[in-house]
Nucleic acid binder design. Structure first.
Lengths: 206, 206
DNA sequence: GTCTATATCTCGATAGAC
DNA sequence: GTCTATCGAGATATAGAC
């Protein structure tokens, strides 16, 4: 039996799906209500306004999607294994919600003031230290002689970008990949994990 | 003297800036009119509707921003030089309009039907063959023994992603980079050209 | 071609019955 | 808590004078 969720949870779920797909202004309250199978007035009853609902969604997406990602880096291990592990885990995480990265980046790129404030607040609350954990780890690997002396910030961006870009650009990439009879999404993504790890590791190892 | 452009051109220019920044639904006609220094009614006079203006903007952004990019690959040269050249040129191109990639990907990700149709039409008209030129070039390099046997589609995505991701994610990355007193955007981007080229080349060379 | 005024419509929000 | 009906703001679009 599918356990009936509370109306509030149903709304939030539907709102996440709708905002993630269409963005802050593209998504309509009626559309969210329909997706939740709930009357439009209830959205206001539970969340007061579209803005408040939207900000709640943004927070949820960020925390659910990326909040615990730095945990992947806590192990003591060779940089090679840390990298392979991270690429694998991060890719797998995104695969579950392929539109999350685009949503976060899109909303930040619009530069709305209220989003900036909420975002700062989120970062404080969840102690989102992925970059520093990451960069510390890279610096250690450089000192150990595992990898070449390359600006850790650049390596960080290259790793994250190599993983996330596929999902961000997927609708565009599909235009070209879909001609390909060999294209199978899940296999391609699995292949991608390995290749991204290989390229970056070979690209920076001593 | 600044040569006075036609009203139509002024509108299109303002519409591009506004839609690129705020997206299809975030941008308002009044805002565009103000940016163009032209009465709002003129927007409808020249472009009939917001939808039509928006689709025109999408087409212009894509063609202006990426339409001629494959030209960079026409030279007969080593793969190493072709890659370095491409990274340099593509980065420089995006730097002139850093928000173009996000705009294109964002609008495609929303999956609106009219955009899909216009997009198919654009691809036919401009013969956007960047991926095939790219992939052919990679396949040749594999046969020559210049680089390892790696799926060219994956290499393509990695190269494009490594370049574009910085600009797509810039508002997010700034949160972390800005603490850094050493951070100078233009220098960072120049440094990035070299590092991306190095990582990928070392990552895949035989 | 350009502008003012206004019509039309979409959508977020609320009132009030149940 | 939930629903129907409706309001009102704001945005697109048009009419019509110049």
């Amino acid at each position: 039996m599918t356990k009936k969720q509370s109306a509030e949870q149903e709304i939030l779920k539907a709102a996440m799906a709708t905002f993630v797909k269409k963005g802050r202004h593209g998504a309509k309250m009626q559309e969210i209500a329909d997706a939740a199978g709930i009357n439009k007035a209830m959205l206001h009853y539970y969340f007061r306004s579209k803005d408040k609902l939207y900000l709640k969604v943004f927070e949820n997406v960020f925390v659910e999607g990326f909040g615990s990602l730095h945990v992947v880096f806590k192990k003591n291990d060779t940089f090679e294994k840390k990298l392979a592990n991270f690429v694998d885990q991060y890719t797998t995480l995104i695969m579950q919600n392929p539109q999350f990265p685009m949503f976060i980046l899109r909303e930040l790129s619009e530069g709305a003031e209220d989003i900036k404030q909420v975002f700062d607040q989120i970062l404080k609350n969840i102690q989102f230290n992925l970059p520093s954990v990451f960069i510390d780890s890279i610096q250690t690997a450089i000192k150990n002689g595992e990898i070449k002396k390359v600006d850790p910030r650049q390596i960080f961006i290259t790793i994250i970008g190599s993983i996330a870009f596929f999902f961000i650009a997927e609708p565009l990439l599909m235009v070209f990949l879909v001609n390909d009879k060999n294209y199978k999404r899940s296999a391609f993504i699995e292949q991608r994990k390995k290749i991204v790890t290989d390229i970056i590791l070979n690209g920076i190892k001593s």
